[in-house]
Design a protein around this nucleic acid. Structure first.
Length: 575
DNA sequence: ACGCATACTTAGAATCAAATGA
DNA sequence: TCATTTGATTCTAAGTATGCGT
Protein backbone atom coordinates (compact mmCIF):
# COMPACT_ATOMS: atom_id res chain seq x y z
CA UNK A 1 0.00 0.00 0.00
CA UNK A 2 1.53 3.24 -1.19
CA UNK A 3 0.13 5.35 1.64
CA UNK A 4 1.38 3.27 4.52
CA UNK A 5 4.63 2.90 2.66
CA UNK A 6 4.99 6.63 2.12
CA UNK A 7 4.01 7.35 5.65
CA UNK A 8 6.57 4.96 7.01
CA UNK A 9 9.18 6.44 4.69
CA UNK A 10 8.52 9.94 5.91
CA UNK A 11 8.87 8.67 9.42
CA UNK A 12 12.24 7.23 8.54
CA UNK A 13 13.26 10.44 6.78
CA UNK A 14 12.36 12.53 9.76
CA UNK A 15 14.56 10.35 11.90
CA UNK A 16 17.31 10.37 9.35
CA UNK A 17 17.60 14.13 9.49
CA UNK A 18 18.41 13.80 13.17
CA UNK A 19 20.25 10.50 13.06
CA UNK A 20 21.94 10.91 9.72
CA UNK A 21 25.39 10.12 11.09
CA UNK A 22 24.15 7.10 12.94
CA UNK A 23 22.29 5.62 10.00
CA UNK A 24 25.08 5.41 7.44
CA UNK A 25 28.68 6.42 7.45
CA UNK A 26 29.36 9.46 5.30
CA UNK A 27 29.00 8.77 1.61
CA UNK A 28 27.30 5.37 1.96
CA UNK A 29 24.12 5.36 -0.09
CA UNK A 30 22.77 1.87 0.60
CA UNK A 31 23.47 -1.45 2.28
CA UNK A 32 21.60 -3.71 -0.10
CA UNK A 33 20.84 -3.31 -3.80
CA UNK A 34 19.39 -5.92 -6.12
CA UNK A 35 17.97 -5.57 -9.62
CA UNK A 36 17.52 -7.33 -12.97
CA UNK A 37 19.84 -5.16 -15.01
CA UNK A 38 18.71 -2.78 -17.77
CA UNK A 39 16.25 -3.67 -20.51
CA UNK A 40 17.73 -3.76 -24.03
CA UNK A 41 15.82 -2.52 -27.08
CA UNK A 42 14.90 -5.16 -29.68
CA UNK A 43 17.44 -6.13 -32.33
CA UNK A 44 17.18 -4.53 -35.76
CA UNK A 45 14.52 -6.04 -37.97
CA UNK A 46 15.56 -5.98 -41.66
CA UNK A 47 13.33 -4.21 -44.17
CA UNK A 48 11.12 -6.26 -46.53
CA UNK A 49 12.97 -7.45 -49.65
CA UNK A 50 10.88 -5.38 -52.04
CA UNK A 51 11.95 -2.06 -50.50
CA UNK A 52 14.70 -0.29 -52.39
CA UNK A 53 17.32 2.32 -51.85
CA UNK A 54 18.52 4.19 -54.93
CA UNK A 55 21.89 5.71 -55.55
CA UNK A 56 22.15 8.08 -58.46
CA UNK A 57 18.88 6.62 -59.74
CA UNK A 58 20.19 3.03 -59.57
CA UNK A 59 18.52 0.42 -57.42
CA UNK A 60 20.91 -0.80 -54.72
CA UNK A 61 20.51 -3.50 -52.06
CA UNK A 62 22.23 -2.34 -48.91
CA UNK A 63 23.82 -4.65 -46.38
CA UNK A 64 22.16 -4.98 -43.01
CA UNK A 65 24.31 -2.45 -41.17
CA UNK A 66 24.16 0.22 -43.85
CA UNK A 67 20.44 -0.35 -44.20
CA UNK A 68 19.78 0.09 -40.50
CA UNK A 69 21.63 3.42 -40.32
CA UNK A 70 20.06 4.60 -43.59
CA UNK A 71 16.66 3.93 -42.02
CA UNK A 72 17.52 6.14 -39.03
CA UNK A 73 18.09 8.97 -41.48
CA UNK A 74 15.06 8.17 -43.61
CA UNK A 75 12.84 8.25 -40.53
CA UNK A 76 13.87 11.83 -39.83
CA UNK A 77 13.40 13.17 -43.34
CA UNK A 78 10.40 15.26 -42.34
CA UNK A 79 12.52 17.13 -39.87
CA UNK A 80 14.22 20.38 -40.64
CA UNK A 81 17.54 19.25 -39.24
CA UNK A 82 18.10 16.64 -41.96
CA UNK A 83 18.56 19.59 -44.31
CA UNK A 84 21.35 21.11 -42.21
CA UNK A 85 24.84 20.92 -43.54
CA UNK A 86 26.41 19.82 -40.25
CA UNK A 87 23.79 17.16 -39.64
CA UNK A 88 24.09 15.75 -43.14
CA UNK A 89 27.87 15.70 -43.11
CA UNK A 90 28.07 14.04 -39.72
CA UNK A 91 25.50 11.46 -40.66
CA UNK A 92 27.16 10.68 -43.96
CA UNK A 93 30.58 10.30 -42.36
CA UNK A 94 29.29 7.84 -39.77
CA UNK A 95 27.01 6.03 -42.18
CA UNK A 96 29.92 5.28 -44.49
CA UNK A 97 31.75 3.69 -41.57
CA UNK A 98 28.94 1.14 -41.35
CA UNK A 99 29.11 0.27 -45.05
CA UNK A 100 30.86 -2.65 -46.69
CA UNK A 101 33.90 -1.81 -48.80
CA UNK A 102 31.85 -2.01 -52.01
CA UNK A 103 29.12 0.20 -50.63
CA UNK A 104 31.65 2.72 -49.48
CA UNK A 105 33.32 2.78 -52.88
CA UNK A 106 30.05 3.42 -54.61
CA UNK A 107 28.23 5.77 -52.23
CA UNK A 108 30.25 8.96 -52.07
CA UNK A 109 27.63 11.68 -52.25
CA UNK A 110 24.63 12.03 -49.94
CA UNK A 111 22.85 14.21 -52.50
CA UNK A 112 22.62 11.23 -54.82
CA UNK A 113 20.94 9.06 -52.21
CA UNK A 114 17.22 8.41 -52.47
CA UNK A 115 15.68 7.17 -49.22
CA UNK A 116 12.12 7.69 -50.48
CA UNK A 117 10.94 4.10 -50.14
CA UNK A 118 12.47 3.77 -46.70
CA UNK A 119 10.81 6.99 -45.68
CA UNK A 120 7.40 5.91 -46.94
CA UNK A 121 7.76 2.57 -45.24
CA UNK A 122 8.38 4.34 -41.97
CA UNK A 123 5.42 6.67 -42.42
CA UNK A 124 3.22 3.68 -43.15
CA UNK A 125 4.40 2.01 -39.93
CA UNK A 126 3.56 5.13 -37.95
CA UNK A 127 0.12 5.20 -39.51
CA UNK A 128 -0.46 1.54 -38.66
CA UNK A 129 0.59 2.19 -35.12
CA UNK A 130 -1.91 5.01 -34.89
CA UNK A 131 -4.74 2.89 -36.24
CA UNK A 132 -4.30 -0.01 -33.87
CA UNK A 133 -7.51 -1.43 -32.47
CA UNK A 134 -8.40 -1.32 -28.81
CA UNK A 135 -7.56 -5.00 -28.46
CA UNK A 136 -4.15 -4.61 -30.07
CA UNK A 137 -3.42 -1.68 -27.80
CA UNK A 138 -4.44 -3.70 -24.78
CA UNK A 139 -2.12 -6.56 -25.74
CA UNK A 140 0.79 -4.16 -26.22
CA UNK A 141 0.05 -2.44 -22.96
CA UNK A 142 0.13 -5.71 -21.10
CA UNK A 143 3.39 -6.73 -22.74
CA UNK A 144 4.88 -3.39 -21.70
CA UNK A 145 3.60 -3.79 -18.19
CA UNK A 146 5.31 -7.17 -17.99
CA UNK A 147 8.61 -5.60 -18.97
CA UNK A 148 8.16 -2.85 -16.39
CA UNK A 149 7.26 -5.37 -13.71
CA UNK A 150 10.39 -7.35 -14.39
CA UNK A 151 12.98 -4.65 -15.12
CA UNK A 152 11.42 -1.48 -13.74
CA UNK A 153 11.97 -2.12 -10.03
CA UNK A 154 14.80 -2.89 -7.68
CA UNK A 155 15.23 -3.73 -4.03
CA UNK A 156 17.12 -1.12 -2.10
CA UNK A 157 17.48 -1.57 1.65
CA UNK A 158 14.23 -3.52 2.05
CA UNK A 159 12.25 -1.12 -0.15
CA UNK A 160 10.98 -2.04 -3.58
CA UNK A 161 11.76 1.07 -5.58
CA UNK A 162 10.90 2.15 -9.12
CA UNK A 163 13.79 2.69 -11.49
CA UNK A 164 13.71 5.92 -13.49
CA UNK A 165 15.26 4.81 -16.76
CA UNK A 166 15.68 1.04 -16.88
CA UNK A 167 15.61 0.94 -20.69
CA UNK A 168 18.89 1.20 -22.57
CA UNK A 169 18.73 4.09 -25.04
CA UNK A 170 18.10 2.73 -28.53
CA UNK A 171 20.55 3.46 -31.37
CA UNK A 172 19.86 6.32 -33.75
CA UNK A 173 21.22 9.60 -34.98
CA UNK A 174 22.32 12.04 -32.32
CA UNK A 175 20.15 15.12 -32.07
CA UNK A 176 21.80 17.78 -30.00
CA UNK A 177 20.05 21.02 -29.25
CA UNK A 178 20.64 24.23 -31.14
CA UNK A 179 23.70 24.50 -33.31
CA UNK A 180 25.38 21.33 -32.12
CA UNK A 181 28.62 20.36 -33.88
CA UNK A 182 27.89 16.63 -33.38
CA UNK A 183 24.32 16.57 -34.66
CA UNK A 184 23.71 13.68 -37.04
CA UNK A 185 26.47 11.42 -35.69
CA UNK A 186 25.57 7.78 -35.21
CA UNK A 187 24.60 6.85 -31.69
CA UNK A 188 25.58 3.22 -31.56
CA UNK A 189 23.69 0.25 -30.21
CA UNK A 190 24.62 -0.53 -26.62
CA UNK A 191 25.44 -4.16 -25.86
CA UNK A 192 25.70 -5.90 -22.49
CA UNK A 193 29.47 -5.89 -23.07
CA UNK A 194 29.32 -2.06 -22.76
CA UNK A 195 27.37 -2.05 -19.53
CA UNK A 196 28.68 -1.92 -15.96
CA UNK A 197 26.36 -3.36 -13.34
CA UNK A 198 26.33 -2.05 -9.79
CA UNK A 199 24.67 -4.09 -7.03
CA UNK A 200 25.25 -5.68 -3.63
CA UNK A 201 27.77 -8.46 -3.29
CA UNK A 202 25.20 -10.58 -1.50
CA UNK A 203 22.44 -9.84 -4.03
CA UNK A 204 21.43 -11.97 -6.95
CA UNK A 205 23.58 -10.50 -9.74
CA UNK A 206 21.49 -9.79 -12.87
CA UNK A 207 21.84 -12.27 -15.72
CA UNK A 208 23.17 -10.73 -18.94
CA UNK A 209 21.04 -11.49 -22.02
CA UNK A 210 21.70 -14.99 -23.45
CA UNK A 211 25.11 -15.34 -25.03
CA UNK A 212 26.39 -12.07 -23.59
CA UNK A 213 28.57 -10.82 -20.73
CA UNK A 214 28.51 -7.62 -18.72
CA UNK A 215 31.44 -5.31 -19.11
CA UNK A 216 31.88 -5.40 -15.35
CA UNK A 217 29.97 -6.12 -12.17
CA UNK A 218 30.86 -3.90 -9.25
CA UNK A 219 29.61 -3.40 -5.74
CA UNK A 220 29.98 0.28 -4.98
CA UNK A 221 27.57 1.49 -2.31
CA UNK A 222 28.92 5.03 -2.35
CA UNK A 223 26.94 5.73 -5.53
CA UNK A 224 23.24 5.44 -6.36
CA UNK A 225 23.34 4.10 -9.93
CA UNK A 226 22.42 0.54 -10.88
CA UNK A 227 24.06 0.37 -14.29
CA UNK A 228 26.13 2.60 -16.55
CA UNK A 229 27.61 2.79 -20.02
CA UNK A 230 29.62 5.24 -22.08
CA UNK A 231 27.88 7.06 -24.87
CA UNK A 232 29.96 6.96 -28.04
CA UNK A 233 28.93 10.40 -29.33
CA UNK A 234 29.90 12.59 -26.37
CA UNK A 235 32.00 10.11 -24.46
CA UNK A 236 29.77 10.79 -21.46
CA UNK A 237 28.70 8.19 -18.94
CA UNK A 238 25.00 7.38 -18.88
CA UNK A 239 23.45 5.98 -15.72
CA UNK A 240 20.46 3.88 -14.78
CA UNK A 241 19.08 5.47 -11.62
CA UNK A 242 16.06 5.40 -9.33
CA UNK A 243 12.76 7.14 -9.99
CA UNK A 244 12.13 10.52 -8.38
CA UNK A 245 9.59 8.98 -6.01
CA UNK A 246 12.23 6.81 -4.34
CA UNK A 247 13.33 7.36 -0.79
CA UNK A 248 16.89 8.05 -1.86
CA UNK A 249 15.90 10.77 -4.32
CA UNK A 250 13.27 12.19 -2.01
CA UNK A 251 15.72 12.60 0.81
CA UNK A 252 18.13 14.36 -1.48
CA UNK A 253 15.41 16.66 -2.71
CA UNK A 254 14.39 17.51 0.82
CA UNK A 255 18.01 18.22 1.70
CA UNK A 256 18.28 20.55 -1.28
CA UNK A 257 15.41 22.69 -0.03
CA UNK A 258 16.74 22.67 3.50
CA UNK A 259 20.03 24.12 2.25
CA UNK A 260 18.08 26.77 0.34
CA UNK A 261 16.17 27.63 3.52
CA UNK A 262 19.43 28.02 5.36
CA UNK A 263 20.47 30.48 2.71
CA UNK A 264 17.30 32.43 3.47
CA UNK A 265 18.48 33.14 7.00
CA UNK A 266 21.97 34.12 5.89
CA UNK A 267 21.37 35.83 2.60
CA UNK A 268 21.42 39.35 4.07
CA UNK A 269 24.93 38.90 5.35
CA UNK A 270 26.08 37.29 2.13
CA UNK A 271 24.63 40.14 0.09
CA UNK A 272 26.32 42.71 2.27
CA UNK A 273 29.55 40.81 1.79
CA UNK A 274 29.48 40.75 -1.99
CA UNK A 275 28.38 44.39 -2.15
CA UNK A 276 31.45 45.16 -0.15
CA UNK A 277 33.59 42.99 -2.42
CA UNK A 278 32.59 45.18 -5.37
CA UNK A 279 35.11 47.67 -3.99
CA UNK A 280 37.91 45.15 -3.50
CA UNK A 281 41.42 45.91 -4.71
CA UNK A 282 41.62 42.39 -6.09
CA UNK A 283 40.24 42.09 -9.62
CA UNK A 284 39.28 38.45 -9.01
CA UNK A 285 37.27 39.38 -5.95
CA UNK A 286 35.44 42.14 -7.79
CA UNK A 287 34.58 39.80 -10.62
CA UNK A 288 33.34 37.24 -8.14
CA UNK A 289 31.17 39.89 -6.50
CA UNK A 290 29.60 41.00 -9.79
CA UNK A 291 29.00 37.40 -10.86
CA UNK A 292 27.35 36.68 -7.54
CA UNK A 293 25.23 39.79 -7.95
CA UNK A 294 23.96 38.44 -11.28
CA UNK A 295 23.41 34.95 -9.93
CA UNK A 296 21.47 36.29 -6.98
CA UNK A 297 19.50 39.02 -8.71
CA UNK A 298 18.82 37.35 -12.05
CA UNK A 299 18.95 33.67 -11.09
CA UNK A 300 21.60 32.97 -13.71
CA UNK A 301 23.21 29.52 -13.78
CA UNK A 302 26.79 29.13 -12.60
CA UNK A 303 28.28 28.71 -16.08
CA UNK A 304 30.92 25.97 -16.07
CA UNK A 305 33.48 26.16 -18.82
CA UNK A 306 32.89 23.80 -21.76
CA UNK A 307 35.17 22.22 -24.27
CA UNK A 308 35.05 24.18 -27.49
CA UNK A 309 33.72 22.38 -30.54
CA UNK A 310 32.25 19.53 -28.49
CA UNK A 311 28.91 21.18 -27.77
CA UNK A 312 26.72 24.08 -28.89
CA UNK A 313 28.02 27.49 -27.85
CA UNK A 314 26.05 28.28 -24.70
CA UNK A 315 27.05 30.14 -21.55
CA UNK A 316 26.10 30.76 -17.94
CA UNK A 317 27.20 33.49 -15.55
CA UNK A 318 30.91 32.72 -15.14
CA UNK A 319 31.35 31.91 -18.82
CA UNK A 320 29.70 35.11 -20.13
CA UNK A 321 31.68 36.84 -22.83
CA UNK A 322 31.96 40.54 -23.60
CA UNK A 323 29.71 40.09 -26.63
CA UNK A 324 26.85 38.88 -24.43
CA UNK A 325 26.19 42.13 -22.62
CA UNK A 326 25.72 45.73 -23.64
CA UNK A 327 26.03 48.65 -21.25
CA UNK A 328 23.70 51.63 -21.43
CA UNK A 329 24.43 54.63 -19.22
CA UNK A 330 20.77 55.38 -19.60
CA UNK A 331 17.97 53.50 -21.32
CA UNK A 332 14.18 53.97 -21.31
CA UNK A 333 14.46 56.47 -18.51
CA UNK A 334 16.61 54.24 -16.31
CA UNK A 335 20.26 54.58 -15.44
CA UNK A 336 23.01 51.97 -15.57
CA UNK A 337 21.19 49.39 -17.65
CA UNK A 338 22.79 46.09 -18.65
CA UNK A 339 21.36 44.43 -21.72
CA UNK A 340 21.90 40.65 -21.72
CA UNK A 341 21.63 38.57 -24.85
CA UNK A 342 23.07 35.07 -24.84
CA UNK A 343 22.17 31.41 -25.30
CA UNK A 344 21.88 29.50 -22.04
CA UNK A 345 21.27 25.84 -21.27
CA UNK A 346 19.56 23.97 -24.12
CA UNK A 347 20.25 26.97 -26.34
CA UNK A 348 17.40 28.92 -24.78
CA UNK A 349 17.94 32.60 -25.37
CA UNK A 350 18.29 34.84 -22.36
CA UNK A 351 17.35 38.39 -23.20
CA UNK A 352 16.92 40.97 -20.45
CA UNK A 353 17.49 44.64 -19.76
CA UNK A 354 18.28 45.26 -16.12
CA UNK A 355 19.17 48.40 -14.19
CA UNK A 356 22.07 47.66 -11.85
CA UNK A 357 23.82 49.62 -9.13
CA UNK A 358 26.36 52.24 -10.12
CA UNK A 359 29.16 50.22 -8.63
CA UNK A 360 28.28 47.08 -10.54
CA UNK A 361 27.99 49.11 -13.71
CA UNK A 362 31.39 50.72 -13.22
CA UNK A 363 32.95 47.34 -12.57
CA UNK A 364 31.48 45.89 -15.74
CA UNK A 365 32.97 48.77 -17.73
CA UNK A 366 36.30 47.99 -16.13
CA UNK A 367 36.06 44.26 -16.93
CA UNK A 368 35.32 45.03 -20.57
CA UNK A 369 38.21 47.42 -21.08
CA UNK A 370 40.63 46.38 -23.80
CA UNK A 371 38.78 43.18 -24.55
CA UNK A 372 37.50 41.63 -27.75
CA UNK A 373 33.83 40.59 -28.08
CA UNK A 374 34.85 36.93 -27.81
CA UNK A 375 36.83 37.40 -24.57
CA UNK A 376 35.59 36.21 -21.20
CA UNK A 377 33.84 38.91 -19.19
CA UNK A 378 35.04 37.33 -15.95
CA UNK A 379 38.57 36.37 -16.96
CA UNK A 380 39.72 35.92 -13.36
CA UNK A 381 36.86 33.74 -12.27
CA UNK A 382 35.42 30.28 -12.78
CA UNK A 383 32.71 28.23 -11.11
CA UNK A 384 35.20 26.30 -9.01
CA UNK A 385 36.54 29.47 -7.39
CA UNK A 386 33.06 30.87 -6.95
CA UNK A 387 31.73 27.73 -5.27
CA UNK A 388 34.78 27.42 -3.07
CA UNK A 389 34.11 30.92 -1.82
CA UNK A 390 30.41 30.21 -1.32
CA UNK A 391 31.00 27.05 0.65
CA UNK A 392 33.24 29.04 2.98
CA UNK A 393 30.33 31.40 3.66
CA UNK A 394 27.87 28.63 4.43
CA UNK A 395 28.20 24.84 4.40
CA UNK A 396 26.58 23.34 1.32
CA UNK A 397 26.26 26.70 -0.45
CA UNK A 398 26.92 26.66 -4.20
CA UNK A 399 25.79 28.87 -7.07
CA UNK A 400 22.73 26.82 -7.87
CA UNK A 401 21.37 27.13 -4.34
CA UNK A 402 20.63 30.78 -5.16
CA UNK A 403 18.35 29.67 -7.98
CA UNK A 404 16.50 27.30 -5.67
CA UNK A 405 16.28 29.89 -2.92
CA UNK A 406 15.15 32.74 -5.14
CA UNK A 407 12.62 30.56 -6.95
CA UNK A 408 11.05 29.28 -3.74
CA UNK A 409 11.03 32.59 -1.92
CA UNK A 410 9.48 34.25 -4.97
CA UNK A 411 6.68 31.69 -5.05
CA UNK A 412 5.97 32.22 -1.37
CA UNK A 413 5.96 36.00 -1.69
CA UNK A 414 3.81 35.98 -4.81
CA UNK A 415 1.27 33.67 -3.24
CA UNK A 416 1.07 36.01 -0.27
CA UNK A 417 0.73 39.08 -2.49
CA UNK A 418 -1.86 37.52 -4.75
CA UNK A 419 -3.84 36.27 -1.77
CA UNK A 420 -6.20 39.27 -1.58
CA UNK A 421 -6.96 39.53 -5.24
CA UNK A 422 -7.56 35.84 -5.67
CA UNK A 423 -10.38 35.72 -3.15
CA UNK A 424 -13.43 35.79 -5.34
CA UNK A 425 -11.66 35.04 -8.59
CA UNK A 426 -9.94 31.82 -9.41
CA UNK A 427 -7.52 30.59 -6.76
CA UNK A 428 -5.75 28.35 -9.19
CA UNK A 429 -5.12 31.25 -11.50
CA UNK A 430 -3.32 33.09 -8.76
CA UNK A 431 -1.21 30.01 -8.09
CA UNK A 432 -0.34 29.83 -11.76
CA UNK A 433 0.54 33.50 -11.74
CA UNK A 434 2.95 32.97 -8.87
CA UNK A 435 4.38 29.91 -10.59
CA UNK A 436 4.76 31.94 -13.76
CA UNK A 437 6.67 34.69 -11.98
CA UNK A 438 9.21 32.04 -11.00
CA UNK A 439 9.36 30.51 -14.48
CA UNK A 440 10.09 33.96 -15.89
CA UNK A 441 12.79 34.55 -13.31
CA UNK A 442 14.43 31.23 -14.20
CA UNK A 443 13.89 31.81 -17.93
CA UNK A 444 12.03 28.54 -18.46
CA UNK A 445 10.76 28.76 -22.00
CA UNK A 446 9.02 26.42 -24.39
CA UNK A 447 8.17 26.39 -28.06
CA UNK A 448 4.57 27.58 -28.42
CA UNK A 449 2.33 24.54 -28.90
CA UNK A 450 1.80 23.77 -32.59
CA UNK A 451 -1.92 24.36 -32.42
CA UNK A 452 -1.68 27.39 -30.14
CA UNK A 453 -3.15 29.97 -32.52
CA UNK A 454 -6.02 27.69 -33.45
CA UNK A 455 -6.91 26.78 -29.91
CA UNK A 456 -6.70 30.43 -28.89
CA UNK A 457 -9.06 31.38 -31.71
CA UNK A 458 -11.47 28.64 -30.64
CA UNK A 459 -11.52 29.96 -27.12
CA UNK A 460 -12.02 33.51 -28.37
CA UNK A 461 -14.98 32.36 -30.46
CA UNK A 462 -16.49 30.75 -27.39
CA UNK A 463 -16.04 33.96 -25.47
CA UNK A 464 -17.81 35.91 -28.20
CA UNK A 465 -20.66 33.44 -28.11
CA UNK A 466 -20.95 33.79 -24.37
CA UNK A 467 -20.91 37.57 -24.65
CA UNK A 468 -23.87 37.48 -27.00
CA UNK A 469 -25.63 35.17 -24.62
CA UNK A 470 -24.99 37.63 -21.84
CA UNK A 471 -26.45 40.58 -23.73
CA UNK A 472 -29.48 38.45 -24.40
CA UNK A 473 -29.77 37.48 -20.74
CA UNK A 474 -29.48 41.11 -19.71
CA UNK A 475 -32.21 42.16 -22.10
CA UNK A 476 -34.47 39.42 -20.80
CA UNK A 477 -33.86 40.49 -17.26
CA UNK A 478 -34.77 44.07 -18.11
CA UNK A 479 -37.93 42.95 -19.80
CA UNK A 480 -38.89 40.77 -16.87
CA UNK A 481 -38.29 43.66 -14.48
CA UNK A 482 -40.58 45.90 -16.47
CA UNK A 483 -43.30 43.31 -16.47
CA UNK A 484 -42.94 42.67 -12.76
CA UNK A 485 -44.19 46.02 -11.41
CA UNK A 486 -44.89 44.86 -7.88
CA UNK A 487 -46.47 41.64 -9.02
CA UNK A 488 -45.10 39.11 -6.55
CA UNK A 489 -45.69 36.25 -8.98
CA UNK A 490 -43.39 37.66 -11.63
CA UNK A 491 -40.80 38.66 -9.05
CA UNK A 492 -39.75 35.04 -8.94
CA UNK A 493 -39.21 35.15 -12.66
CA UNK A 494 -37.05 38.25 -12.25
CA UNK A 495 -34.93 36.46 -9.68
CA UNK A 496 -34.53 33.53 -12.01
CA UNK A 497 -33.49 35.74 -14.89
CA UNK A 498 -31.09 37.57 -12.67
CA UNK A 499 -29.48 34.33 -11.58
CA UNK A 500 -29.14 33.18 -15.18
CA UNK A 501 -27.55 36.47 -16.12
CA UNK A 502 -25.08 36.28 -13.25
CA UNK A 503 -24.16 32.70 -14.07
CA UNK A 504 -23.53 33.76 -17.63
CA UNK A 505 -21.40 36.65 -16.45
CA UNK A 506 -19.36 34.36 -14.21
CA UNK A 507 -18.74 31.88 -16.99
CA UNK A 508 -17.65 34.65 -19.28
CA UNK A 509 -15.23 35.96 -16.69
CA UNK A 510 -13.85 32.49 -16.13
CA UNK A 511 -13.25 32.01 -19.83
CA UNK A 512 -11.62 35.39 -20.17
CA UNK A 513 -9.38 34.58 -17.26
CA UNK A 514 -8.51 31.26 -18.86
CA UNK A 515 -7.70 33.01 -22.11
CA UNK A 516 -5.37 35.42 -20.32
CA UNK A 517 -3.75 32.56 -18.45
CA UNK A 518 -3.13 30.64 -21.63
CA UNK A 519 -1.88 33.64 -23.53
CA UNK A 520 0.55 34.52 -20.75
CA UNK A 521 1.74 30.90 -20.78
CA UNK A 522 2.31 30.77 -24.50
CA UNK A 523 6.08 30.59 -24.37
CA UNK A 524 6.61 29.86 -20.70
CA UNK A 525 7.10 26.41 -19.21
CA UNK A 526 5.80 26.10 -15.66
CA UNK A 527 6.67 22.46 -15.10
CA UNK A 528 10.42 22.82 -14.75
CA UNK A 529 10.27 25.19 -11.81
CA UNK A 530 7.44 23.25 -10.22
CA UNK A 531 9.45 20.04 -10.39
CA UNK A 532 12.92 21.29 -9.58
CA UNK A 533 12.94 24.70 -7.90
CA UNK A 534 9.84 25.23 -5.81
CA UNK A 535 9.88 23.77 -2.32
CA UNK A 536 6.76 21.57 -2.47
CA UNK A 537 5.97 22.35 1.15
CA UNK A 538 5.06 25.92 0.12
CA UNK A 539 2.46 24.56 -2.28
CA UNK A 540 1.15 21.94 0.13
CA UNK A 541 0.70 24.57 2.86
CA UNK A 542 -0.97 26.93 0.40
CA UNK A 543 -3.44 24.26 -0.61
CA UNK A 544 -4.29 23.58 3.01
CA UNK A 545 -4.76 27.25 3.77
CA UNK A 546 -6.78 27.98 0.65
CA UNK A 547 -8.79 24.76 0.86
CA UNK A 548 -7.70 23.77 -2.61
CA UNK A 549 -7.39 20.08 -3.48
CA UNK A 550 -3.76 19.15 -3.88
CA UNK A 551 -4.44 17.32 -7.15
CA UNK A 552 -5.41 20.65 -8.69
CA UNK A 553 -1.78 21.68 -8.30
CA UNK A 554 0.14 18.40 -8.58
CA UNK A 555 -0.66 15.48 -10.84
CA UNK A 556 -0.08 11.88 -9.81
CA UNK A 557 3.61 11.77 -10.71
CA UNK A 558 4.25 15.02 -8.92
CA UNK A 559 2.38 13.88 -5.82
CA UNK A 560 4.51 10.73 -5.81
CA UNK A 561 7.69 12.71 -6.11
CA UNK A 562 6.66 15.07 -3.33
CA UNK A 563 5.22 12.40 -1.02
CA UNK A 564 7.76 13.43 1.61
CA UNK A 565 6.51 17.02 1.61
CA UNK A 566 2.84 16.10 1.48
CA UNK A 567 3.10 14.12 4.68
CA UNK A 568 5.26 16.41 6.72
CA UNK A 569 3.79 19.82 5.90
CA UNK A 570 1.43 21.71 8.20
CA UNK A 571 -0.64 24.80 7.42
CA UNK A 572 1.88 27.09 9.06
CA UNK A 573 4.88 25.98 7.03
CA UNK A 574 7.12 28.83 6.05
CA UNK A 575 9.99 28.47 3.61
C1' DA B 1 45.95 25.63 -10.45
C1' DC B 2 44.81 22.62 -14.03
C1' DG B 3 42.52 19.07 -16.68
C1' DC B 4 39.89 15.26 -16.60
C1' DA B 5 36.52 11.84 -14.80
C1' DT B 6 32.48 10.92 -12.28
C1' DA B 7 27.84 11.34 -10.46
C1' DC B 8 24.08 13.55 -10.05
C1' DT B 9 20.16 17.38 -11.22
C1' DT B 10 17.76 20.05 -14.50
C1' DA B 11 15.70 20.70 -19.18
C1' DG B 12 12.51 21.00 -23.23
C1' DA B 13 10.74 18.08 -26.88
C1' DA B 14 8.56 13.97 -28.37
C1' DT B 15 5.34 10.63 -27.59
C1' DC B 16 1.49 8.52 -25.49
C1' DA B 17 -3.05 8.45 -23.15
C1' DA B 18 -7.05 10.61 -21.42
C1' DA B 19 -10.50 14.08 -21.83
C1' DT B 20 -13.38 16.82 -24.49
C1' DG B 21 -16.48 18.20 -27.81
C1' DA B 22 -18.52 18.06 -32.78
C1' DT C 1 -18.60 7.69 -31.54
C1' DC C 2 -14.84 9.42 -33.54
C1' DA C 3 -11.48 13.08 -34.02
C1' DT C 4 -9.15 16.59 -31.90
C1' DT C 5 -7.08 18.76 -28.00
C1' DT C 6 -4.87 18.70 -23.68
C1' DG C 7 -2.33 16.81 -20.08
C1' DA C 8 0.85 13.17 -18.46
C1' DT C 9 4.80 10.48 -19.25
C1' DT C 10 8.99 9.27 -21.38
C1' DC C 11 13.23 10.37 -23.23
C1' DT C 12 17.79 11.77 -23.18
C1' DA C 13 20.61 15.99 -23.67
C1' DA C 14 22.77 19.46 -21.10
C1' DG C 15 23.76 21.39 -17.21
C1' DT C 16 26.18 21.71 -11.98
C1' DA C 17 29.45 20.22 -8.77
C1' DT C 18 33.28 17.80 -6.81
C1' DG C 19 37.28 14.82 -6.38
C1' DC C 20 41.58 13.15 -8.05
C1' DG C 21 46.10 13.02 -10.11
C1' DT C 22 49.62 15.93 -11.90
Amino acid sequence: NIWTYSFRSVHIWQCSLVWEEEKYEAGIKWKFLEHKGPYFPPEYNPLPENLNFYYNGEKLKLGLRAEEVALYFAQMLDHEYTTREVFRNNFFKDWRKEMTLEERMLITDLEKCDFGEYHNFHKQKVEERKNRTKEEKQVLKEANQKITDEYGFCMLDHHRERIGNFKIEPPGLFRGRGDHPKQGLLKKRIRPEDVIINCSKESHVPEPPAGHQWKEVRHDNTVTWLASWTDNVQGATKYVMLNANSKLKGEKDWEKYEVARQLKSRVDGIRAQYKDDLKSKQMGTRQRAVALYFIDKLALRAGNEKEEGETADTVGCCSLRVEHIMLHDSLDGEKCVVEFDFLGKDCIRYYNKVPVTKRVFKNLKLFMENKQPGDDLFDRLNTGMLNKHLSSLMPGLTAKVFRTYNASITLQQQLKELYDECVGTEKLLSYNRANRAVAILCNHQRAPPKSFEQSMANLQAKIEGRKEQLTLAKAELKKAKKEAKGNSDTKLVVEKKKKAMQRCEEQLLKMEVQATDREENKEIALSTSKLNYLDPRISVAWCKNMEVQLDKIYNKTQRDKFAWAIHMTEKDFEF
